[in-house]
Design a protein around this nucleic acid. Structure first.
Lengths: 134, 134
DNA sequence: GCATTGTGCTTGCAGTTGCAAGCACAATAG
DNA sequence: CTATTGTGCTTGCAACTGCAAGCACAATGC
């Protein structure tokens, strides 16, 4: 299946950036750092200082603590860190309350056609907050 | 005993060290850094990286978070507010390495067309409307 | 066709971190 | 008085961070 989240800091940052649909330059500007530097950070060629990390957290609108933990400069005991969920597309789609069932099926169809997966075709997965549908 | 809050990081570190009755060399050794460097940090001549700060926290047996806040690289307010949504379609799509970038874009396009653009998925309005603003 | 704009990346280069080696001074002992 | 041992501090120097300028490629418009 999909592998567990992120191996290192750079990948995590890139993932966050791309899921926010932002370019390197956009995030760099929002964070107040240069774009080539961000690029290097994302590829693991540079180890950013904590200040840069904080600015990046702001630019990406994510938690600075999470980033520090990712960067290995904070132990995640004090923060009450939530357990990391594996990012499963199927589960995420099923759990999204804003989608109608029809839309869910459409998305899942496309997704399965991409990954060629028949495995959990019977999509009846759990969901934590079963929205019984207002 | 209780001292008034310290103006800057260096003074704070020195205070902690002295109240622990340790020499510069002792703390430096316990933290795994060099003694002249610690001396410079305490006098405010150098701005230690977060890694050094973490090691110092260990060497002094004090909270790393406290030190980060003191160093100005962590906001006091942010220390308890992780707002990561476990089941996020966007993130899940981005994290799925079975997909190509092209496929990701296609899926995201469909998804966004369903939920309305701008989306970062969370159905619940945890986020106070933050209209972006370049 | 050929600009134009957007994307990420490569390349020098100034400025900083962090350290090994050594200095100046005080307090102990011999 | 002369070691010896402790304290904090000064001084170059290698290694790294972070950036401005520019490159290569793709997608758009004219």
């Amino acid at each position: 299946m999909s592998r567990l989240p992120v191996p290192d800091l750079g990948s995590y940052l890139r993932e966050q950036r791309e899921s926010a649909q932002m370019s390197v330059r956009q995030v760099a500007k929002a964070a107040g750092i240069s774009n080539p530097y961000l690029s290097q950070i994302e590829r693991g060629l540079r180890r950013p200082s904590a200040e840069i990390l904080q600015q990046l957290a702001k630019g990406l609108r994510i938690s600075a603590e999470q980033l520090y933990i990712r960067a290995g400069i904070l132990d995640d005991s004090s923060t009450g860190a939530p357990v990391e969920q594996p990012y499963d597309v199927t589960v995420a789609i099923m759990a999204d309350e804003r989608l109608t069932d029809r839309q869910r099926r459409a998305l899942l169809d496309v997704y399965r056609s991409f990954v060629g997966d028949g495995a959990d075709a019977t999509a009846e997965p759990v969901d934590p907050a079963t929205p019984d549908h207002p």
